[in-house]
């Protein structure tokens, strides 16, 4: 699977209700170091109810200038959330379906 298969596809819950689009895929480098870097493990997908277009970097909490741009993009992406890999039931070019008891987490990057 490649990232482009995933970005921008619909995300639905277990009943088929549309929740938004995949706007990003989050990874963590937390395994034991391999040769140079450790493995990049998929943490989950960031779901945006409105648009899968880029957040232009304003998904990070410490980036908020110039103020009007940051406000505009945050407003376009309001209601975005992170769903962990464990809560994904099906994933592919036709979209992502979540498990029935999924948890939505805040998607903002702390730093």
């Amino acid at each position: 699977m490649i990232l482009n298969d995933l970005l921008g596809t619909d995300v639905v819950d277990s009943t088929g209700q549309r929740l938004g689009e995949v706007s990003d895929v989050r990874f963590a480098l937390d395994a034991a170091p391999a040769q140079l870097l450790s493995r990049a493990r998929m943490v989950g997908v960031v779901v945006c109810p409105r648009t899968a277009t880029s957040f232009l970097g304003y998904e990070r909490m410490d980036v908020n200038q110039p103020w009007p741009l940051a406000q505009l993009l945050r407003w376009r992406h309001r209601g975005s959330f992170l769903v962990l890999w464990e809560d994904i039931a099906v994933m592919g070019p036709d979209g992502v379906r979540l498990r029935s008891e999924f948890t939505a987490y805040e998607s903002t990057l702390p730093r």
Binding site: L7, D24, V25, R26, A28, V46, R60
Partner: peptide, 8 residues
């Protein structure tokens, strides 16, 4: 560990 958003 390091967190990477692929698009970002």
């Amino acid at each position: 560990g390091l967190v990477l958003d692929a698009q970002l």
